[in-house]
Design a protein around this nucleic acid. Structure first.
Length: 644
DNA sequence: CCTCGCTCATTTTTT
DNA sequence: ATGAGCGAGG
């Protein structure tokens, strides 16, 4: 079964799929078949006997790459599943474990997720005494944000402070000192945070010997969601690709929504600077949405400062349903409207629940809706926001696994020691200092002093005796840790039964892993995506369900019917963003991304009265982003929309 | 010196 | 629901 590329693709897609050598930038508007193009291109390369291992597909999440490769293999053959794919972070992780010794790293490093790196900064802040001595010293989360901003935007600390945190400018010296201490601490304890993964990835590729090796391994590079990469990632692409110059980057400047992470559409310029022979291919025709929806999307972007592209258009999807703007008097009413409409669609039109999504700016915007869905027994899965793996009880358990994998991981040691009664950060630091000097880091009864903790340290040693022996499968280790952790869990949390269920789920996930290292890397880099409010296990997600999602997590996806809820000033755009023109523009693009997810039906809902956390009502006008929709019959107005 | 429990304030988006 | 800040008590 040969693929008829010419018939199944439009001319621009066909060109992108069939051109092989060279550097290409594919500018692809929303719904223009970007994924389809990448899928066919992988199939085409594999079909023409390019070894799949020599193709590298860099995507935004690993799920995205797995899905694409799966589709490619359905199209062509199984070899597509052997294509290397993943995020910049995960590829960096793999290469650093393999070749990291070339730049002085040891392969057993632990990856710190953002809350771990914040814990680490907290430890150092206390150690330096900054928190106590200096009033209003930045919180650990702020420190982490400052450092990350500085690295991802390539901006020295003094400029970061001047631009984003002028109130801390007088602490420049202390903050600079802390940053150095943080780097040193990570190095000493074999720890790597998210930013380090990119920085070190780049450093690794700068070693000529490694660079050549890696370039020889990956002969064809494809980069998805290019608009959301930052300077560091652009440099990595450059280093990966300049040996052979076979690169295809795909992106849509109008959908750049990660500039808070240093993403910058100006990267396209960098790309041109690195590769002057760059050829641009444009995918313009939309295959996803009805023209009525596209008209609305185009109108949303009309006031944008940058005129990125010309308007989205569809030749094939006529559709008669006019998108709606729905005003309500209260959040409860907004929720009723959404749930009523969903029931109507599923009952009278027999639309599968899977074809519907509700999108919002912030994870907590859906609380009211979740209550109503639960009341009416509508099954949903929520994406974005607080993640399952970030909850305290999961982190507690994981910290035990991490010291097994890297006994040098002082952040995890601190976390698990703090679980003991009477143990605080100071004592933990002293314990860890001694542990580092031990020949066997788990021989805790050998520690001098700490009489008060003789019993708990003994118990912990027993635990480690069980779980460090030989090459145990992760699930077995976790079972032992759970037994050990249970008393602490029950005394620490009143809601322990719920947390226990979470831990059981975690055990279920871990059972799929044979190697502890792999489990830990995935926990940090590709955690289960659903947040903890909704269902989590795969079995559950396979059931028919409604999707609730932040717009960020909905990137790249599409549904028959989409509700964009909380379209209020104060919610969407995010109030933090309205003062800064650039940030407001990003909110606009985010709103646009939300709207472009819809294929057939699109609703914007808002409530003119909102509740603050004490239950007091305040009035919130409809989002300014809805203003362009007021005229021309672009949308129908439902509910109480007199303010609109 | 250190930990613990109380109170008050606070929540963007993600690898 | 969580985190920081503060003061009491071990």
């Amino acid at each position: 079964m040969k693929i008829d590329y010419e018939k199944e693709l439009n001319p621009a897609q066909y060109e992108a799929v069939t051109r092989r050598e060279g550097v290409f930038l594919v500018i692809a508007g929303a719904g223009s078949g970007k994924t389809r193009t990448l899928v066919y291109r992988v199939a085409k390369l594999v079909e023409s006997d390019i070894p799949p291992e020599s193709i590298l597909l860099l995507t935004f999440t690993r799920k995205a790459s797995l899905e694409m490769l799966h589709r490619s293999s359905m199209l062509a053959d199984d070899r597509c599943n052997r294509v290397s794919g993943g995020t910049f972070h995960s590829v960096g992780n793999l290469l650093l474990r393999k070749y990291g010794s070339a730049i002085g790293m040891s392969p057993g490093f632990t990856i710190l997720d953002s809350s771990d790196s914040q814990d680490c900064l907290g430890i150092l802040k206390t150690e330096k005494g900054y928190g106590k001595e200096i009033k209003n010293f930045p919180k650990k989360s702020t420190l982490s944000a400052i450092f990350s901003f500085s690295i991802n935007k390539r901006m020295p600390l003094n400029l970061v402070l001047a631009k984003a945190y002028p109130q801390f400018l007088f602490l420049l010296e202390e903050i600079t000192h802390l940053k150095a201490a943080y780097s040193e601490y990570k190095k000493k304890h074999n720890l790597v945070d998210y930013d380090d993964l990119l920085v070190l990835f780049k450093e690794l590729l700068e070693s000529p010997e490694i660079q050549e090796k890696v370039q020889r391994q990956y002969r064809f590079l494809m980069v998805d969601e290019y608009q959301d990469t930052n300077i560091l990632q652009a440099e990595i692409i450059n280093l990966l690709g300049r040996g052979h110059n076979n690169i295809m980057a795909v992106g849509d400047p109008a959908q750049c929504i990660y500039s808070f992470r240093g993403a910058n559409f100006g990267n396209i310029m960098e790309f041109e600077r690195f590769f002057p022979d760059l050829q641009v291919i444009k995918l313009e025709e939309n295959y996803r949405s009805t023209q009525k929806i596209l008209d609305v999307c185009n109108a949303l972007m009309a006031p944008a400062r940058e005129k990125f592209a010309k308007n989205l258009f569809s030749k094939i999807k006529k559709g008669k349903e006019v998108p709606a703007v729905v005003g309500s008097d209260s959040p409860a009413e907004e929720a009723y409207f959404i749930v009523d409409t969903i029931e109507e669609l599923t009952h009278t039109l027999s639309l599968p629940l899977n074809d519907i999504a509700v999108l919002f700016r912030n994870s907590f915007h859906s609380f009211e809706l979740e209550l109503e869905l639960n009341k009416r027994n509508i099954h949903f899965v929520k994406y974005g926001g607080f993640k399952f793996v970030e909850t305290a009880h999961i982190k507690d358990v994981v910290s035990h696994l991490r010291v097994v994998a890297n006994p040098n991981d002082a952040v995890s040691w601190t976390r698990l020691l703090l679980l003991m009664d009477g143990m605080g950060p100071k004592t933990a630091a002293k314990v860890i200092q001694q542990i580092q000097a031990l020949e066997n880091p788990f021989a805790l009864t050998k520690l001098k002093g700490f009489e008060k903790f003789r019993k708990p340290l003994h118990d912990l040693e027993q635990l480690f005796r069980h779980i460090t022996a030989a090459d145990r499968p992760p699930s077995l280790i976790i079972e032992k840790v759970l037994d050990y952790y249970n008393p602490a869990l029950e005394s620490k949390y009143d809601d322990f039964p719920k947390r226990k269920r979470d831990l059981d789920q975690f055990l279920g996930i871990a059972a799929k892993y044979k190697k502890l290292d792999q489990l830990l890397a995935d926990m940090a880099l590709e955690p289960p995506n659903a947040s903890r409010n909704g269902a989590l296990a795969d079995a559950k997600t396979r059931e028919e369900h409604l999707v609730l999602s932040t717009v960020h997590s909905a990137k790249g996806l599409e549904w028959h019917t989409v509700f964009v809820m909380g379209a209020n000033e104060g919610s969407f755009p995010n109030p933090y963003a309205v003062e800064d023109e650039e940030e407001l523009e990003e909110e606009r693009r985010l709103f646009y991304v939300a709207a472009t997810r819809a294929k057939e039906r699109l609703y914007f809902t808002f409530s003119t009265l909102k509740k603050d956390r004490y239950g007091n009502f305040y009035s919130a006008p409809p989002s300014q982003f809805l203003h362009p929709l007021r005229e021309n019959g672009l949308v129908k107005k439902l509910g109480s929309w007199e303010y609109f």
